[in-house]
Each structure stands twice: as structure tokens, then as C-alpha cells.
């Protein structure tokens, strides 16, 4: 079963809807056992970093996420929480990716909101069939700095991590569930990953 980790705010149902449109069933849960037994885990992120991390710690979901061996996808705030720390609420995060989340300087409109492309640093299964001219939908005021685990970058105000990958952990700063056919291709790529 595909599991979408439950949060305290926002519309994670849109992730479930997108997964359903691709023909997959999924459940939304914060039950550690169900998350551990999942075939794939999606870790969406909506809301604010420090309250999201508190929510995870209270339920010991931070330990659960770190122990996962199946393909796990962080989306938006999910990606940021998988980094070492976030400037949002000065939060210590999960530390899966060796980088930090910072706030955009107000050198252009913030949040970075709308359709923008990304450039691939590596050609991986996750990015199969995606071109550098394809646009995806971003909405975020914080960004993860680039690091060795960055497999695609986007440039807005500065270059930041758009897609990251480390072992079984994958993450996207944009919203594939809201990124029309390109987003569907990316989600399908993730859902079709071998274990």
C-alpha cells in the first residue's frame, strides 16, 4: 500500500487525488506501523517547519521516517524537513540531505509562486522523460541550498535544490500533484520505482 504521511494542516488530499488519477490506491495516516509496512511513502509538506517537526516528533514519526527502506518521496515542505535544518522557526530537521533550508532574500517576489523549470544535474529514473523546458508548479518562501544530493536545480533569486535523491529518499521542492502532465510523469516515475 502507498502511504501518505498525515499532517496537521493543509490539503494533502490533493496528493492522494493525484495518486488516484494514476490508478493507485493510497491511505493517509500517521500510524507508524502502517507507514513502516508501506510499499511507497509520500511525505508531503504543507504548513510551517517548526510546527510540522513538533508534530512528527510528538508521534515519533521522525524516527519512523529515518528508518524507512522503501522509496520515500518528500514534497515541498517535505523536502525541506528532510534537510539538516530550516531557517523557518530555526528548526532542527531530519538530516537526510546534507544541506540547509534558508529563507529567500526579498530580491524578487516572495513566495516563489508559479511555473518554473529545473535543470537536471543527473539523469535518474525519477526524472525519466522530463526535459529541461518542462515547467512544474512551485510555491515556497524557503529553499534548500544545493548539495551533493541535488539532482536538479531551479534558479529563482538564487540556484536552489529542486529535486534531491539519496538512497531510497527522494524529494521535490515543487508540487508534482499540481504540475499537470509533467507532474503526473514524475509521480508515475516515483510510483514505478523498484524497491
Amino acid at each position: 500500500m502507498i502511504v501518505i504521511i498525515k499532517y496537521n494542516a493543509g490539503n494533502i488530499r490533493s496528493v492522494q487525488n493525484a495518486v488516484a488519477r494514476l490508478g493507485y490506491e493510497s491511505i493517509i495516516t500517521d500510524n507508524p506501523k502502517e507507514i513502516r509496512e508501506a510499499t511507497k511513502v509520500i511525505f508531503p509538506g504543507v504548513g510551517e517547519a517548526s510546527s510540522a517537526m513538533s508534530y512528527l516528533r510528538e508521534r515519533k514519526l521522525d524516527e519512523v521516517i529515518l528508518s524507512l527502506k522503501q522509496p520515500t518521496l518528500g514534497i515541498c515542505l517535505g523536502l525541506q524537513l528532510m534537510c539538516k535544518s530550516s531557517e523557518e522557526g530555526n528548526t532542527i530537521c531530519l538530516g537526510i540531505f546534507d544541506t540547509e533550508t534558508k529563507q529567500f532574500l526579498p530580491e524578487d517576489k516572495v513566495p516563489h509562486m508559479g511555473w518554473n523549470s529545473f535543470s537536471k544535474k543527473e539523469d535518474t529514473t525519477l526524472l525519466k522523460g522530463i526535459n529541461s523546458t518542462d515547467d512544474v508548479y512551485y510555491v515556497h518562501g524557503y529553499y534548500a541550498e544545493t548539495c551533493n544530493e541535488t539532482i536538479a536545480t531551479c534558479n529563482y533569486i538564487k540556484e536552489f535544490s529542486s529535486v534531491m535523491q539519496k538512497n531510497n529518499f527522494y524529494a521535490m521542492q515543487f508540487h508534482p500533484e499540481k504540475s499537470a502532465s509533467v507532474g503526473e510523469q514524475l509521480l508515475r516515475n516515483f510510483l514505478e520505482l523498484e524497491k
Binding site: 493543509g10 490539503n11 488530499r13 490533493s14 487525488n17 493525484a18 508548479y137 508540487h175 499540481k178 503526473e184
Partner: peptide, 25 residues
């Protein structure tokens, strides 16, 4: 599969919550 906004008659956090829970972005 693209973002959408819903407006009209929202005057409280509860009004907004009902729409966001229903899937409004």
C-alpha cells in the same frame, strides 16, 4: 491537476478550512 483558488463568502478560518479540506489550493 493544476492549482485552483476558491473565493466568495469566506469570512472565517472555519469557512476557509472547509474549502481547503475539500481540496482548494
Amino acid at each position: 491537476n493544476i492549482p485552483f483558488t476558491v473565493g466568495g463568502g469566506i469570512s472565517s478560518v472555519e469557512d476557509a478550512l472547509a474549502l481547503i479540506k475539500a481540496g482548494a489550493d
